[in-house]
Nucleic acid binder design. Structure first.
Lengths: 339, 339
DNA sequence: TTTATTTACGCAAACGTTTTCGGGAACGGT
DNA sequence: ACCGTTCCCGAAAACGTTTGCGTAAATAAA
């Protein structure tokens, strides 16, 4: 049972494929009666144009790609939901790629996207990517790319991120307001731009409020709770004895949360804890986790809108825009000492 | 800067495209010297065959699809990781589709998969799908399909699931062993096969151990923590006063966990709680959550292996197999009263 | 009636490959 | 010198679609 093609319709109606094609696209140079017959038969045979043939012909696919490190990270899952929201409405299908934070996989993903004639892609770059030529080459050819969250600044295209600096500043200030004196920051991978900016917000907040900044107060781990619980255990065993922790992500915060509980300490009395992103999970913890909320869904929407604009009119508005979204401090029991 | 094609190579070498094509595939009917020149130039020009053209020609794409309700559910994210693991090794690329538990979206996804000439797909069906003809039609055409987790029994193809009945039985028995008398089951959407089987395991365990089964002890909700926290609040306000809860998923259990804490009750003393799946999150809660572990990664691997077998040799082994994976009871503080 | 214009359709090329068929040249055997 | 192989390679069709161009018939303008 093969798929029905335009040829089948042509044959049955004693027409040429060109006529059928034109009739289906409602061309003015086709007789009204012929059109009717074609449309009718197409309907009856449940004809749908072959997207692969169209791809070959037009060099596009109506697919857009999105590369994220890991879909199991709820933050990215929500961003993708936002992307799908606008892409779907615009008639695009979004194809999800995981880099698993691995450079090689990311390169493979980019090649797949290009070879399969996707119309463009959105990407949050992998942790260990240091060579960006796979992006640069495509961008130089005019291929539409939008960076989000984990952005790379050196390529002149649209970017969407949150104000990491401000979010981190506010989180740290909040901890200071709660009377914390020894505030530790557990950062993500150090070379990531978002890590740097959050670290900077943390440092500046300390200095602005007359607290000293010790290098030993800055720890670092990956963005997942499995690994961060180990780091948190180390931290609690160390001589630092923090009374406040600002974690660079909710997953890291969740690891801290577990380690603190495990150590028999209580939040917020012994340690005030705050995370970053405000994942749905945060409110479910015991005690509920404070966090810097990121508009993840909105980030996805914005990024997709920019990409689609880039695809549809590549020539106008050649100015690339960098959209910075605002964060929102959500205070819950894990950090709230005073009222 | 167009992509380099076989024609470009042919032109530069004064050869026909057929010769170049054959040279690249190392055909024996091409002169050794010609081969060398072609390979060399192809290397130099960084030639890669166009997958779209190949798709059109061969009616396949080396892509396999996977349809899940929601990638933000860590269970599915892990299954997908398992799928990618074997698919990648076999040279397939996996394209992820989300149905968002919506029938219409699922139908659209299936169409996309078929139209784009994917080689086959794996699917965990959407909650509100009651009409399965979009699967049936394709299966009748010989299109490779494998069901996993949320399977549909009426179609004669490979299926991979866990022993839900046994897992539920063991969880319930464990609660009974801990001295629980009023054990409530919070089920997923009732018409889902996995919901039915888990419910059945729960019931049978009660009866086998001389506990009465009350219909009012069975509650139901969606498979996400947002909605289940509401249900759990209702439950705790009701007259039932459960001393044990078996939740049909970890997400549901997490909702219960939050609601129980919120109500000022403690686990496992007031209520012993156990979930299903043993998501990474379970161990991070306070107190840590007991759960029936599912081999999610292995489920993905098995399903992918079966699908690829189906794709590569559609004719041999026409017997469809149903693979049932074993669960594993993981007991943590949320349910452990005795030692 | 002749000429110009419109109407309605078909032919063929193009997108990038693979593959069937065929054929010229060189070579071996008689 | 002739025939049968073997070795290399090219022409063309096929996958499904769109579109520029050509053209016959019908209609309008002269």
């Amino acid at each position: 049972m093969r798929k029905v093609t335009i040829k089948d319709i042509a044959k049955q109606l004693n027409l040429s494929t060109s006529t059928v094609s034109r009739a289906l696209r409602d061309s003015h140079e086709i007789g009204i009666e012929t059109k009717r017959k074609v449309l009718e038969l197409a309907e009856q045979l449940d004809y749908t144009p072959d997207p692969v043939a169209l791809s070959l012909l037009n060099s596009h696919s109506n697919d857009i790609g999105v590369i994220v490190p890991d879909i199991s990270n709820p933050f990215f899952a929500i961003v993708i939901a936002g992307i799908e929201d606008v892409a779907f409405a615009e008639g695009y299908h979004v194809v999800i790629y995981q880099s698993h934070d691995d450079y090689e996989r990311e390169v493979l993903n980019v090649k797949h996207i290009y070879n399969r004639r996707k119309d463009g892609f959105l990407v949050a770059v992998a942790t260990n990517t240091t060579d960006f030529s796979h992006f640069k080459n495509l961008h130089d050819k005019g291929f539409p790319i939008v960076f989000f969250d984990r952005i790379y600044e050196e390529i002149d295209t649209h970017k969407v991120a949150v104000d990491d600096y401000e979010g981190a500043y506010n989180a740290t200030k909040h901890l200071i307001d709660q009377g914390c004196q020894r505030i530790v920051h557990i950062s993500g991978p150090p070379h990531l731009l978002i890590s740097k900016r959050r670290l900077q917000g943390y440092k500046t907040a300390l200095l602005d409020h007359g607290l000293p900044h010790h290098e030993e107060y800055v720890w670092s781990t990956h963005f997942d709770s499995q690994q961060s619980i180990e780091v948190a255990r180390e931290l609690l065993k160390s001589a630092i004895k923090p009374d406040g922790i600002f974690a660079a992500s909710d997953n890291i915060a969740i690891g801290c949360h577990a380690a603190i509980t495990e150590a028999g300490l209580t939040m917020p009395k012994d340690i005030a804890l705050i995370g970053f992103s405000d994942l749905p999970m945060a409110a479910m913890l015991n005690p509920p986790l404070s966090s810097v909320a990121q508009p993840a869904f909105e980030m996805g929407r914005s990024a997709a809108e920019l990409l689609i604009k880039l695809i549809k009119k590549p020539n106008e508005n050649t100015q690339s825009v960098t959209k910075t979204l605002k964060t929102n401090l959500v205070i819950r029991a894990s950090s709230l000492r005073k009222r």
